[in-house]
Lab assay of single mutants.
Amino acid sequence: MEVRTIKVFTTVDNINLHTQVVDMSMTYGQQFGPTYLDGADVTKIKPHNSHEGKTFYVLPNDDTLRVEAFEYYHTTDPSFLGRYMSALNHTKKWKYPQVNGLTSIKWADNNCYLATALLTLQQIELKFNPPALQDAYYRARAGEAANFCALILAYCNKTVGELGDVRETMSYLFQHANLDSCKRVLNVVCKTCGQQQTTLKGVEAVMYMGTLSYEQFKKGVQIPCTCGKQATKYLVQQESPFVMMSAPPAQYELKHGTFTCASEYTGNYQCGHYKHITSKETLYCIDGALLTKSSEYKGPITDVFYKENSYTTTIK
């Protein structure tokens, strides 16, 4: 009895394709271990004539594949690729409408935090270190965002349907971005203890939790000093293409032309909904596939993004 075979390709990165001759009487799992086709788990399936010449994702289970996976995804987590594939199996079914010149995501599976993050990423200057993220990001900007969303979920250790947080998501993504040249110098002034300067680099240099107003941050924000008295913390120097200011959701007025974009969060910790506000020729609110415009805006804002380049204080 002759062994019926077909020729397929296996890959971990969709760049390096490895030619395989597979036995049609055995499952993919018996031949390769966990195997995925377009995100779908085909591990328990036997090869079919229609699979001839198709590319299958496999887990990096030998040295060659491990090197290829690390170079593309910059992670050695053995569960990463499987999590990416199972997320992709959902995100490829989502709709990605162009809204006001940006790629958004039609609401499904509690994905409003991903839509808000995706919209924000198209408006701030950011370059990702893992080629996987950078490639998928370019495709997302062009309207094909399924891979990018699935990668975000995998890097953030999230599953489809789980509630997510924009600030946490951005923080994970910033860790995989090139923020080497970003720098922030802060000064804390206390009447009792004097003053202390701190220099922050990388992710810490672009994120701040405690106030939404970048102007206020430049002037000074009140913080408790270690001595128990009130101290003032203010920005001395900022070198970065953008800054992200966050605070627990509270009524906040966004003035046209003073910011790049913002995240609105309605609801409580267990259950809520994100919308995205962007400042173009007027203010726009993007909620999944829905767009509304207004000249002014007041609502429960939790993150505001500002364009920056270089700032030095005039406070002496």
Results as ranks from 00 to 15, higher is better:
residue 2 E to C: 13
residue 3 V to C: 14
residue 4 R to K: 14
residue 5 T to I: 09
residue 6 I to T: 11
residue 7 K to Y: 11
residue 8 V to I: 11
residue 16 N to F: 06
residue 18 H to Y: 07
residue 19 T to G: 12
residue 23 D to P: 10
residue 23 D to M: 13
residue 30 Q to M: 10
residue 33 G to W: 02
residue 40 A to Q: 14
residue 40 A to L: 14
residue 43 T to D: 11
residue 47 P to T: 04
residue 50 S to M: 13
residue 51 H to P: 05
residue 54 K to H: 15
residue 54 K to E: 15
residue 55 T to S: 12
residue 58 V to G: 02
residue 60 P to M: 06
residue 61 N to R: 11
residue 62 D to N: 14
residue 70 F to S: 07
residue 72 Y to K: 10
residue 74 H to Y: 06
residue 77 D to V: 05
residue 81 L to T: 10
residue 85 M to W: 14
residue 88 L to S: 03
residue 89 N to A: 14
residue 91 T to M: 01
residue 96 Y to F: 11
residue 100 N to K: 11
residue 101 G to W: 05
residue 102 L to A: 10
residue 113 Y to F: 11
residue 115 A to E: 04
residue 116 T to K: 00
residue 117 A to P: 04
residue 124 I to W: 00
residue 124 I to V: 08
residue 124 I to D: 02
residue 126 L to D: 05
residue 127 K to F: 12
residue 133 L to C: 05
residue 134 Q to V: 11
residue 135 D to F: 08
residue 139 R to Y: 09
residue 140 A to I: 11
residue 141 R to E: 08
residue 142 A to V: 13
residue 146 A to I: 04
residue 148 F to L: 11
residue 149 C to A: 09
residue 153 L to D: 05
residue 155 Y to W: 05
residue 159 T to K: 15
residue 160 V to T: 05
residue 164 G to I: 00
residue 164 G to E: 01
residue 177 A to V: 08
residue 178 N to C: 09
residue 185 V to Y: 03
residue 187 N to C: 15
residue 191 K to F: 07
residue 192 T to Y: 10
residue 193 C to P: 03
residue 198 T to C: 14
residue 199 T to A: 09
residue 199 T to Y: 08
residue 203 V to T: 09
residue 204 E to P: 13
residue 206 V to Q: 02
residue 208 Y to H: 15
residue 209 M to C: 13
residue 215 E to H: 10
residue 215 E to C: 06
residue 215 E to M: 06
residue 218 K to F: 03
residue 221 V to G: 03
residue 221 V to Q: 07
residue 225 C to N: 00
residue 226 T to D: 11
residue 226 T to F: 09
residue 227 C to F: 01
residue 230 Q to M: 13
residue 234 Y to R: 09
residue 235 L to V: 11
residue 238 Q to M: 01
residue 241 P to H: 07
residue 241 P to Y: 04
residue 247 A to N: 07
residue 252 Y to P: 00
residue 255 K to F: 09
residue 255 K to C: 10
residue 256 H to V: 15
residue 257 G to A: 08
residue 258 T to K: 07
residue 262 A to Y: 00
residue 265 Y to V: 01
residue 268 N to S: 13
residue 273 H to F: 00
residue 276 H to G: 00
residue 278 T to Y: 13
residue 286 I to Q: 03
residue 288 G to S: 01
residue 295 S to G: 13
residue 296 E to L: 10
residue 296 E to V: 12
residue 297 Y to H: 09
residue 305 F to W: 08
